[in-house]
Nucleic acid binder design. Structure first.
Lengths: 208, 208
DNA sequence: ACAACTTGCAACATCAGTGATGCAAGTCCG
DNA sequence: CGGACTTGCATCACTGATGTTGCAAGTTGT
């Protein structure tokens, strides 16, 4: 006896790459190629087709489906993959222990390193995946902690609103990651931090 | 003789609201309701269905299709509608003639007034519609002209990169429009201009 | 070498979304 | 009032995307 197609569709799930035991070398390469192609393709068009992703990966569409049961599973895997790198990048900057300005610069540079090249995956912060959401939440708190430390140290003005400043900071990183024309990560990080701290105005404008 | 359905699908187009002569009062109301519902619905989920939009407008899906031949036509009409308001808002601030700081503040406030409530429509800057694209291009140039004027007047530092500053400015407006918790447009404009000009740092940080 | 695994291909099922249409009932406006 | 317009409803046509399956051919690891 066979179950109705529709029922099987909603029920059957293959294991996502995270959930199985080691893949054979060729399969491993394929998975990586698919994830990278998905990033490239989806960052250009978030509504891109499985077909387009498969093509970009140089692979048949059926193969994509063999590795990622559903489109959702693929995007989820992408988000998890990028999120781990993201958290690692933040952590490596010692945002809770280094002097505020140093931590701010280092964090910015590290995050830009990940964000350039994994922009789509990183935009999945509000993922359905609780792990992804948790990590993004943690990073957000780390960021605000750093900003509070910076404020106490006199790096940030005493009257700044921390959540607003964090949003501005995220937006600057986002813009810098889009912008990158010829510039390297360090130059971009300098630009972001400089803009965040000093803004674009003169210290004491004398006219309107 | 009847043409094949598929052919008609790609060919037949009803006039968009902009392209016809006056509608009867009830039809006019329906069109407005649909546009407003589209904005509300699409700003929450850009992939929302015609069905969802119709429901939000309190109208049958067929009615939406009667007024806007295709989904594309609806989004286009939305973009045109918002773009006109956008251009008018910028223009009303006299960005080319008022003193730079005044113009900057006034433009910000006016644009926020439109952007809050028409966020989705305004995000369609890279619309297929040449009119929309042209207006957004014009506004962009007006903005950069204003910034150059501000730089010459000593409001912006002499070393700022105008395109980067404009991008930052846009991003700040975007964040402020999302952010609006209880704040009115003037408070938001103050926040944006203040952040753009002064940043979040202290004038002379004495530590790292 | 050989068993296990992986891939491409072709074919298929299903579904959701889009768009069209005819008709009956309601609304507008001269 | 009465003709013209508009809407909801039910129904249909079509398309594109997603996901499945079986099989033959190629690859991997031991």
């Amino acid at each position: 006896m066979t179950l109705p197609y529709a029922f099987r569709m909603k029920t059957q799930r293959r294991s996502t790459p995270a959930g199985g035991r080691p893949l054979r070398a060729d399969a491993e390469r394929t998975v990586t190629a698919i994830l990278e192609a998905a990033e490239r393709t989806l960052s250009r068009d978030p509504a891109a087709t499985m077909e387009q992703i498969a093509e970009a990966a140089g692979v048949a569409r059926t193969t994509v489906h063999r590795r990622f049961a559903t489109r959702e599973a693929l995007i989820d895997a992408l988000a998890v993959w990028a999120t781990q790198r993201f958290a690692a990048a933040v952590d490596a900057a010692h945002p809770d222990t280094a002097p505020p300005l140093v931590a701010l610069y280092q964090t910015t540079a590290n995050v830009l390193g990940v964000k350039v090249g994994w922009g789509f995956a990183m935009s999945q912060a509000s993922s359905a995946n609780p792990e992804v959401a948790r990590v993004h939440g943690d990073v957000r708190e780390t960021c605000e902690r750093l900003f509070r430390r910076a404020r106490e140290a006199g790096v940030l003005r005493a009257d700044v609103d921390i959540p607003w400043t964090r949003r501005v900071y995220y937006a600057l990183i986002h813009e810098a990651a889009q912008n990158r024309d010829e510039k390297d990560t360090d130059a971009l990080a300098t630009l972001v931090v400089d803009t965040l701290l000093r803004g674009a105005g003169t210290p004491h404008p004398d006219r309107l």
